[in-house]
């Protein structure tokens, strides 16, 4: 896998939500590593803790959510041990983040110029004029035409795609080492989505930053990521580099996900798309044993009793399954 220096190492992260109706283990013992310049895809169905994991890295989990265990080692230091003030200085400077909803992620009452230069001014020791110049550069960089005019526009005067570009400009404003993209293209039209992905890839190449790419869309992962972690109910079930996971999926869940992606071959042959049976379990009442067992065609008594460990099945290929997919089936 990666030979470069480790940038971020998340170890056994646990973020639980303490609600009136019980405890939801949104992130339950997640570990992964991002090297400098690596793009890691975190993939899974909605509601399986991907976003909470990313917010935990930023330490922006709102009550009743709470990080109750684990370590988040960023550049050799545990972010969970930082004071709020130290953490604030890392946010937006060393780790940038973009969110799913471009329509609501920008403050409606300030111009976008104001909102981007604000991010620059808070982390860099420069004056207002300088910040404005830098903002216009950034707007240029993310492909917004007429940046001088756009500088004074409000979010409601821009399209969703443009707003997401503004969000990216904001996240890039201090040249972060890590960019977290939390379903950043999900809400966009397909063509706009492609443009934004292209832009992020381009920026990644230019700056060499690492990206934690969170999505439920496997096609995007195939397009963007170097390695991929598949999550299910707050746990990683399969983790390897992108080629391995796509060519040789071992967990039944990953296999099911990959099989349910429509492909041109399937369209031509009119083969019915297989779907994973059942639905994501109720977070308040997780099934005993492997959380995937009610939906798994190969589940056995053991699967219904104990949660399997995440084990290295092959070289650099971690799988949490007692009955991994046998044949090396080509799925994509």
């Amino acid at each position: 896998m990666y030979k470069t220096e480790v940038l971020l190492e998340v170890k056994d992260l646990k973020t639980y939500f303490f609600t009136d109706d019980g405890v939801v283990k949104a992130v339950d013992g997640v570990s992964f590593t991002i090297h400098k310049g690596e793009v890691l895809g975190l993939v899974g169905e909605s509601g399986c803790g991907k976003s909470v994991a990313s917010l935990s890295i930023m330490r922006l989990v709102d009550a009743p959510g709470k990080i109750i265990g684990g370590e988040i080692i960023f550049k050799g230091e545990d972010l969970l041990k930082k004071t709020p003030e130290e953490m604030r200085k890392i946010r937006g400077a060393e780790i940038g983040m973009i969110f799913q909803e471009p329509m609501t992620s920008l403050n409606p009452v300030y111009t976008i110029g104001n909102q981007i230069s604000e991010a620059i001014l808070v982390h860099q020791d420069i004056g207002g004029e300088e910040a404005k110049k830098r903002t216009i550069e950034l707007l240029n960089l993310v492909g917004i035409p007429e940046p001088e005019r756009r500088f004074n526009q409000y979010p409601h005067e821009m399209s969703g795609g443009m707003r997401q570009r503004v969000m990216i400009a904001m996240a890039m404003s201090s040249n972060p080492d890590l960019l977290i993209s939390d379903e950043a293209t999900t809400a966009l039209d397909v063509t706009i989505q492609a443009q934004i992905l292209e832009l992020m890839k381009d920026l990644q190449k230019k700056t060499g930053m690492a990206i934690l790419f969170i999505t439920h869309d496997l096609a995007i992962i195939a397009e963007m990521a170097d390695s991929v972690a598949v999550t299910y109910t707050g746990k990683i079930v399969e983790y390897s580099d992108v080629r391995t996971v796509f060519k040789n999926p071992k967990h039944q869940y990953t296999y099911g996900l990959l099989m349910s992606v429509p492909s041109l071959v399937a369209v031509e042959t009119k083969v019915e798309l297989p779907a994973i049976e059942g639905m994501v379990p109720n977070p308040y009442h997780m099934p005993q044993g492997c959380h995937f067992n009610p939906r798994c065609p190969f589940a056995t008594e053991t699967c219904r009793k104990e949660m399997p460990e995440l084990k290295e099945l092959e070289q650099q290929h971690l799988v949490r399954c007692l009955h991994p997919v046998q044949a090396s089936k080509e799925v994509v």
Binding site: T19, D21, V24, G47, N282, P283, Y284
Partner: peptide, 8 residues
């Protein structure tokens, strides 16, 4: 959401 997820 949490009420929905309680499902059936």
């Amino acid at each position: 959401l949490e009420e929905k997820s309680k499902g059936r």
